[in-house]
Computed example of a mutant assay.
Amino acid sequence: MSEARRKGRRGALLILSLAGLVFGGIAAAGFLGGYRINTTPSFPLGLWRIEALHREVRVGDTLFICPPANVPAIKLARERLYLPAGLCEGGMAPLIKTVVALPGQTITVEGDQVAIDGDRLAHSSIQQWDAQGRALPTYTRGVVPLGELFVHSNYVASFDSRYFGPIPAGGVLGMAREVFTFQP
């Protein structure tokens, strides 16, 4: 191999190495700065930021929240790859979900839709089967316990509290704010 060719390969390796370091540095800075990339259709795709929440959670808040790893429906969702990998307990990524019910509110299922304190929740039809024909777990009713939240996404195939029930408010990482997103 000629000297010029060796120098060319070394130069290319150096450029690729530097590019990898720069990309890794940007990713690490983004992660440490609270930035996350959403690749699921439950909310717009793209770059989101976790913002600190300096008040009590309210109905209508869109949050980043870690799902509890010890809930059977969550375990099933992770096994079936409904939930992406990440740094929450159980190796899951935080969810982006909107709070639709707080402790003390009553959840029921009327037909195939969720109702909160008797009022039907828009975009809350419950699917019986996933895209591969496997039965889905369903949360059918109950009062949201103290310290927990009932979370939802308007996306028809979102895996949310319709399937796993209320989840601990202690998993809230902060408000979910769009930075650069798009709807496919």
Rank of each mutant, 00 (worst) to 15 (best):
R9G: 15
A12R: 13
I15V: 15
A19D: 04
G25N: 12
A27F: 03
A29G: 00
G30W: 10
F31I: 12
L32E: 09
G33S: 12
G33C: 03
N38D: 09
T40M: 10
P41D: 01
S42F: 01
L47K: 09
R49V: 13
H54S: 14
H54E: 15
R58K: 14
G60R: 10
D61R: 06
L63W: 06
F64H: 07
I65P: 07
C66L: 01
C66T: 05
C66F: 05
P67S: 09
A69D: 07
A77H: 09
P84S: 12
C88A: 01
E89M: 06
L95D: 11
K97L: 06
L102Y: 08
G104T: 02
Q105W: 04
T106L: 15
A115I: 07
I116A: 06
D119A: 12
R120T: 01
H123S: 02
Q127M: 09
G133N: 07
A135E: 14
A135H: 13
G142Q: 02
V144K: 11
G147P: 00
V151P: 03
V151W: 10
N154F: 15
N154Q: 14
Y155L: 00
Y155P: 08
V156L: 04
S158Q: 02
F159R: 01
S161A: 08
S161N: 03
Y163I: 02
Y163N: 11
Y163W: 10
F164N: 08
G165W: 08
P166S: 02
P166H: 13
P168G: 04
A169D: 08
G170F: 10
G171F: 06
V172A: 04
A176C: 03
E178I: 15
V179C: 05
F180E: 11
F182W: 15
